[in-house]
Amino acid sequence: MDRFLSLVGRDLHLAQRHGFDSLLVVVFFIIAVVLFPFGVGPEPNILARIAAGVIWVAALLASMLSLERLFQTDYEDGSLELLLLAPLPLELVVLAKVAAHWLTTGLPLIVAAPLLAVLLNMNGAGFAVLVAALALGTPTLSLVGAVGAGLVLGSRRGGVLLSLLVLPLFIPVLVFGVGAVDGAIGGFAFRSPLLILGGMLLAALALCPWASGAALRQALG
């Protein structure tokens, strides 16, 4: 457990030393959402109707953009080899890196989301559920993305390829994430989509570190 925490701590430390880099993801998130009023017009009713979907799609794209770097720097400077040889299970190494990644990129998205919901004139009934759904959904995105990030290591055009691999797998999170918020706003059940999001998070927690570990092994083999 100590080693797990020291791995998380090292990645957080690195992110902090890189300073602005992880904030860029939030800035991208905000800009992507702000583009929509320019695209569909500033009509408050239309914006309110699409707010949940827009925020979720932008969150999806933002977390995907940052995933490319998840293993890339460690792969390039040789640290990944040493992490593979560290005396702790590779699945834990993956989990530690995903945890640090989520803390530096997923968490800021959740903080920024209510602000964007205000900009898009979203119904107040949806705010709490939006935050809850993002809190359950974005770790799943990071976990599923970790598999893709491991697979594309050493390929030509890693980033574009990663989005092609990972975005279709993000669809269920998008569907239930938006479903929960729309449910809360529309006054019908939002508990079940939230529970399903939680279920998907648990399944991803159990399976993704393992698949991502297999991907890392073959990347270095």
Partner: peptide, 16 residues
């Protein structure tokens, strides 16, 4: 790499 992706994708097909 693609073999791992095929299995991950296959596991996701029912969820999708």
């Amino acid at each position: 790499a693609a073999a791992i992706l095929a299995l991950v994708g296959f596991a996701n097909v029912p969820i999708i």
